[in-house]
């Protein structure tokens, strides 16, 4: 059982000024997940008649990408290859002080407390993160085009991105390159996506720039902090795809 000091960013809404506030929680089991620890805090706040801390979360099994906390100076906390909901309290020690902050980026404005607006990612996807195929019972048979296993596996690895935004949060420039590159790579690697690859990469990068994300300076922080360990090779592929597209289109 642990007793902890929490320093949490509180902000009433997008327009208000926020600040760090200090809370204490006691008797935290090391088997709890980080979010369950926050549940304990919120239960405590509600019982005291106070406003609970707002944070995004949903599936609590590391796949929906909703949870998004900057914990002790790192997105999704100190552990690697996991999301906040998979972070367990056994990572911390009795008496620790834990800083909990929202993702910080101009493109991700705070909605309340630790909740940020990540619809910029949706808009990037809308600008080209798809294959333009209508629903039809008559597309070609799924096995008509064999896809080399390596390409399929690499496409899958890129496609595992959960859109949580940890890459943006970790990047000192709040760049969204890893997110964009994951989708561009997935579709550039598959024959189905190759038809539109040039328009896709141009449009997605244009939208990314419009949203106000910073520029990639190849620090590699995004990939290290990515819960799905999306590789920097994807960013290189994006750079390549974009260069070819802008030279020829």
């Amino acid at each position: 059982m642990m007793n902890l000091t929490l320093k949490i960013w509180r902000q009433a809404d997008a327009k208000s000024q926020g600040k760090m506030e200090t809370f204490k929680v006691t008797e935290i089991s090391e088997h709890m997940s980080f979010l369950e620890m926050l549940d304990v805090l919120n239960e405590q706040l509600i019982n005291e008649g106070k406003d609970p801390v707002a944070f995004d979360h949903d599936c609590r099994e590391g796949i929906c990408g909703a949870c998004s906390l900057y914990i002790n100076g790192q997105p999704h906390g100190p552990d690697r290859a996991i999301t906040t909901c998979q972070l367990h309290m056994r990572t911390f020690k009795d008496g620790d002080t834990i800083y909990i902050e929202p993702w910080r980026a101009k493109a991700f404005p705070v909605i309340k407390d630790l909740v940020v607006d990540r619809t910029a990612f949706d808009r990037i996807m809308q600008s080209g993160g798809y294959v333009s195929v209508n629903t039809s019972g008559n597309t070609i048979d799924a096995n008509a085009i064999p896809i080399p296993k390596e390409d399929a596996d690499n496409a899958f690895d890129a496609a595992t991105c959960i859109g949580c935004g940890a890459c943006v949060a970790a990047c000192k420039n709040a760049s969204a390159m890893l997110f964009v590159s994951a989708k561009v790579s997935q579709l550039a690697l598959l024959p189905q996506g190759k038809v539109e690859r040039q328009d896709r990469v141009l449009n997605m990068v244009e939208q990314m720039d419009k949203e106000g994300f910073g520029n990639c300076t190849n620090t590699g922080a995004c990939s290290i902090e990515c819960p799905k360990e999306i590789s920097l090779e994807n960013i290189a592929r994006l750079n390549r795809e974009y260069l070819m597209a802008s030279l020829t289109k």
Partner: peptide, 11 residues
């Protein structure tokens, strides 16, 4: 068929 056409990376 539909999902493969959309670029779903099945195993």
């Amino acid at each position: 068929d539909q999902c493969v056409a959309q670029g779903v990376p099945f195993a």
